[in-house]
């Protein structure tokens, strides 16, 4: 196994077993936890452990993306949704046994698909007839040690596919403009804070020296 070819095999193996053990345990906890909030928190633990496994495999980019995108964005969104929704825990548990066979069947199908993909991968390589372009792309395993895959991805993304990377940015920009155009309405009577106006206001406009007569008041026109 490649895993044990590393300089400190025992440490790597230990890290692998710890990470995968916690991963499987927390994955189970996601399903079994009573409170939905706990489920989401266990999901986050899951993501962190999976990121650790990716690190062991030398895929540090995937590890970072997993943490940034899934933990930073997706899981936090889940957390918000779960905390904001008023859920009946008992109602959620209802029908667990009834849906169990269907769920188990789906899980089996997914497992079978994964196994088929693993088996079919090598067969699929022979099916492609444009072998030239495939061969120029250096496989991960061979480069792994010398060039980090972040560097490789960066080279591909910012050199070869520079145009498409920027154009994707434009697509996101259009999506943002679209969301604003479709939802933004200017409401009358909204008081805004004009910071520039506040800062630029001369001192004379703010400080008044008054000398109120005894028994009289001050004109308040600010």
């Amino acid at each position: 196994m490649e895993l044990f070819a590393n300089p400190a095999p025992i440490l790597t193996a230990l890290a692998f077993w710890v990470l995968s053990g916690v991963l499987v345990g927390s994955a189970l906890a996601v399903v079994l936890a009573r409170a939905p909030v706990h489920s989401v928190l266990f999901l986050i633990l899951c993501f962190f452990n999976a990121a650790g496994l990716f690190l062991l495999l030398g895929a540090e980019f995937l590890a970072m993306i997993l943490v940034v995108v899934y933990v930073g964005a997706v899981a936090v969104l889940f957390l918000f949704v779960v905390m904001m929704l008023d859920m009946e825990l008992v109602a959620l548990r209802e029908g667990f046994l009834r849906h169990l066979p269907l769920g188990a069947l789906l899980a089996l199908v997914l497992l079978a698909e994964l196994i088929l993909t693993a088996i079919g991968w090598h067969a699929a390589q022979d099916l492609r007839f444009v072998s030239a372009t495939v061969a120029t792309a250096v496989p991960f395993a061979e480069v792994g040690a010398e060039v980090s895959n972040i560097k490789m991805l960066g080279a591909v993304l910012y050199d070869d596919y520079f145009l498409l990377f920027q154009a994707s940015g434009l697509v996101l920009l259009v999506a943002m403009i679209g969301a604003i155009v479709l939802t933004h309405r200017t409401r009358p009577g909204v008081r805004r804070q004009e910071i520039a106006e506040q800062v630029l206001r001369p001192a004379e406009a703010r400080i008044h020296a008054n000398n109120p007569p005894i028994g009289g008041g001050v004109d308040w026109d600010v």
Binding site: Y161, L164, A167, V171
Partner: peptide
Amino acid sequence: MTLYIGLELQSLALYV
């Protein structure tokens, strides 16, 4: 890929 991104950029703006 250029085809897809171009088409998507065009379409997304047109939906809006």
